[in-house]
Design a binder for these strands. Structure first.
Length: 275
DNA sequence: ATTAGGG
DNA sequence: CCCTAAT
């Protein structure tokens, strides 16, 4: 009686959108089985994912938070699709003018390019201290000179920024954007007491009117990654020595791994306090 | 067994 | 969300 239907929370919507952006719309089973999203969508089936995607794609003034446009799959016909579709497209990790083979490419390949852009945005915004913030063009240029971006990156960036603003992750001032300083990782919910298995670990419909439970923690982790990446980039550009680069790459790799771990824990619903 | 569409 | 048709 207290649960009229299955409440699709923001975490599930986020996971669904991320999965669609990663695997493509239509691969619901793959998205559901993906270890990164299976924590959030464990209680959902492929049909549920499809239904929810159809419902949120209907821009009818109800729940049209955003228009996540996905123009179907690319070439899907059985001409070039044997049986197992392993999307192992190598991510082009190109550093500006530096021909160093860091382990960053491996990480980029692992994380694809979906959460990576969020990190890059945080990094770009963390380097600016002016109160007017950073405008979209500057952010775009900042990310463009560090990573290979698709031709429609400007549009993608706009969507990402709007989403981050809507989720109170970053702040929009005048014509620019800036990230929120108060990164206090609070622990408002004691969560469940079953760390082993939980069929429906998602919190009740209580909106904290400021931040999500796992959202700010994930952003905090992303912040740490951004710092490490920015430091790594600047240092390697200044010194240009293989030893330095190698050491820096190791640091970045460790931090990235740590961030991944934190993100995993957050996805499981556990509260993580990042110092 | 999965996906897509209608109820 | 449940059911059904098509791959």
């Amino acid at each position: 009686m207290g649960a009229p239907k299955q409440k699709w929370t923001a975490e599930e919507e986020e996971a669904l959108r991320a999965g669609v952006e990663k695997h493509g719309a239509g691969k619901w089973r793959t998205i559901q089985r993906d270890p990164e999203f299976s924590r959030c969508l464990a209680s959902r089936s492929n049909i549920d994912l499809k239904d929810k995607w159809r419902n949120m794609s209907l821009c009818g003034g109800q729940g049209s938070r955003e228009k996540t446009r996905v123009p179907r799959i690319k070439g899907t016909t059985g001409a070039s699709l044997p049986s197992s579709q392993t999307l192992t497209s190598s991510a082009p990790a190109k550093l500006g003018g530096l021909s160093v083979n860091t382990d960053l490419s491996k990480n980029a390949q692992e994380q694809k390019i979906s959460p990576k852009y969020i990190t890059l945005i945080i990094e770009a915004l963390s380097n600016v201290k002016e109160p007017q913030g950073m405008d979209v063009g500057a952010i775009c240029s900042y990310i463009e000179q560090r990573n290979d971006v698709p031709p429609n990156f400007r549009r993608l960036l706009g969507s990402k920024l709007r989403r981050l603003v809507a989720q109170n992750k970053i702040e929009k001032v005048e014509k620019g954007y800036k990230l929120r300083e108060p990164f206090v990782t609070k622990t408002p919910t004691p969560k469940e007491k079953d760390p082993g298995y939980r069929p429906r670990p998602l919190p009740p419909p209580v909106i904290t009117s400021s931040m999500d439970v796992v959202g700010d923690a994930a952003i905090a982790a992303a912040y740490k990654i951004a710092e490490a990446e920015a430091k790594s980039f600047l240092a390697s550009e200044a010194v240009k020595e293989a030893e330095r680069v190698s050491k820096m790459a190791e640091e970045t790799d460790s931090l990235l791994m740590l961030a991944r771990e934190i993100f995993e824990q957050c996805s499981r619903g556990e509260v993580v306090t990042v110092a």
